[in-house]
Design a binder for these strands. Structure first.
Lengths: 365, 365
DNA sequence: TTGTATGCGTTATCAG
DNA sequence: CTGATAACGCATACAA
């Protein structure tokens, strides 16, 4: 046995000078173990374990003695050994990059809630760029996370490869990736882009512009592709493309560049809402253009600000709830050390029309 | 030793049909262990351990053999056993509630980055209310987190008590709590409230209103206290108080109630920016009041939206970076199973004046 | 430099 | 119902 290893406290544990738990800590141990509890309760360690797991096969009297000792020692069973035994940590890593975008912070919050409900804990990993992933990934493997959810706006093939090499199930949120170990959940960005084209044309616009996210963003590229594709099908002029970075300032500056000519475009589609809001401010405050009279504007995500009375931005609402749900169920299903389901899951987005593309019903019809 | 326990693979490990790592997984094990690596490299387990920790006392040839085998098996040392040995997990839990508030999502992002830099991992915990904490707290103890950072807008004395009982260092972000095991980092809310009173009076306002956060929010209460206190000192009329919930809609609705009379207040201070933005929209869009001509408005936090051209909200910028830094250093210093430093840390906030309290310089002076 | 042996805190198996 | 014992994967003291 391991008794007799520590100096003397074997006896001390009976008396009660200060708190028993405090005295224990003074011996250098941070937490009481089941052995400590067992000793104080005068039972075997197994009895303690049984009391705290299920509680089957424990007599009432033993149980009482154990619980009493446990309370005195502030004992909480550790999950760490279980991880070693079962090779399951119940830890899920979520990698995020753009928490400045309320869409992603909302998604993160939902993930966390859902995983907690499912009995998992969330290891949050911040990666400014997918490049920064390389530093953190080894840690994830070492903590034996059961799965990794990448909620990065950008996930390069290289980074996906790195993730895949861990042989840990990876679910890419919002970026489709082709890889045996990487599943993906995203919304139909191409279709959404097409819908915006139809909407703009329907509202009478003849010239178009698009402000993109970072060049590497799949989502942004897909939205643009659908937009241009549909414009071409309709026989409309192709959109001029400006480049942003998914942030307000990027939209603001890109709009200044795109709309400074004599014949500014009549409609603007932005790869996300932050860009769109920045662009609207540039159009209105700096260029003196009216929305929607002079320019129609649409964004993507339906972040809370999009619905503010002072903003009123037409946008696509990604069904974050459904996307999170899909992701969580993939994670829960793939917890066996085997690759996750490989079919990319696509959730549809819904157009929410607001004032930025729609004249408010004028009272005098 | 533990050899000879598994069926037969002891021999198989030499050959190379598929990938060695894959074959290993097929035996039911999810990860290769140092023992697996040792066997394949033909060395002892301790040699493997030494190779990966520091690398001292390993001959070049052994090292090479080990690394080679490790690569073949996709071996990553597990941190889990180390947690058992050292009673340190290098895991820090961050409890959040209001990620819908960009201030908190920014804070979370900073925390995560900083902790990662310091070699810690972040366990993210979502608690809709501090009440919900009770469900999650036992888990935290069981995962043996080294510290808990509460970034809850509200932390009741009861919840703090519960946290404190874990004997894990707790740092309360933005809510001062008196408890041996709970340190706190916040900004000087009372002083900020006083400064707003001065600003409003200085800008010519004579009647005042305040929209609070949830009743239980210490921060909101402190801001209000400072505001009223200073108004009284100056001999101004006390502010009417409306109640919000820290969200846009709460500010919108509270403003409708506060400003529907014949003599609406001339200045409005809101407990955070989201409330203030909601209130501004209500004032302008629903009540037809002008800002700042008819009503001065100030908020708190300096979230990105506050600086948008379409918003231009005067607000207090909490120095989130400094607050995070303070918190992180408390965590890093207190990692010994002893209570953290108890002196509450107070970081000052800075007034950022924008259009909502300040007439833009009129061109025609 | 190398290998052997032991402990960390659980759970599961098995004998009493 | 109860207690002893063997893993889990790593680090470390100790022996060779």
């Amino acid at each position: 046995m391991s008794a007799g290893k520590r100096p003397a406290p074997a006896d001390d544990l009976g008396t009660q000078a200060v708190s028993d738990a405090d005295r224990l800590r003074d011996t250098g141990k941070k937490y009481a173990s089941s052995v400590d509890v067992a000793r104080m309760a005068g039972v075997s360690q197994s009895a303690v374990s049984r009391t705290f797991s299920g509680g089957a096969n424990v007599s009432e009297s033993t149980r009482r003695k154990v619980l009493e000792a446990a309370a005195k020692l502030d004992y909480r069973p550790s999950l760490i050994p279980r991880i070693m035994l079962t090779h399951k940590s119940n830890l899920v890593a979520i990698v995020v990059g753009g928490l400045y975008n309320p869409f992603y912070s909302a998604v993160l919050e939902q993930f966390t809630s859902r995983f907690q409900e499912a009995g998992h804990q969330v290891l949050l990993v911040h990666a400014a760029s997918d490049h920064a992933l390389d530093d953190v990934i080894p840690k994830l493997a070492s903590y034996r996370v059961d799965a990794i959810v990448s909620a990065l706006a950008i996930l390069s093939a290289g980074a996906a490869e790195t993730l895949a090499k861990l042989k840990i199930p990876v679910i890419s949120f919002n970026t489709a990736v082709k890889n045996e170990w990487v599943a993906s959940v995203s919304c139909d960005n191409v279709e959404a882009g097409r819908a915006v084209a139809d909407l703009f044309v329907d509202r009478g616009a003849r010239s178009f512009a698009f402000i993109s996210g970072p060049m590497e963003s799949h989502a942004s590229a897909a939205r643009l592709r659908g937009f241009q594709e549909r414009l071409r099908e309709i026989g409309a002029a192709p959109a001029q493309v400006g480049r942003g970075d998914y942030r307000y300032e990027g939209g603001f500056n890109a709009a200044l560049r795109l709309f400074d000519g004599a014949q500014p475009p009549q409609a603007l589609f932005c790869a996300n809402d932050l860009l769109a809001i920045g662009a609207m401010d540039a159009l209105r405050k700096s260029l003196g253009l009216r929305i929607p009279e002079d320019v129609l504007v649409a964004g993507f995500d339906d972040i809370p600000s999009a619905s503010w009375a002072s903003i009123g931005l037409t946008t696509f609402r990604q069904d974050a709830g459904a996307m999170v749900e899909e992701t969580v169920s993939i994670v829960l299903a793939s917890e066996n050390g085997k690759p996750p389901a490989i079919e990319p899951v696509v959730v549809s987005a819904r157009l929410i029309e607001r004032n930025s593309t729609h004249r408010p019903t004028t009272r005098a019809a």
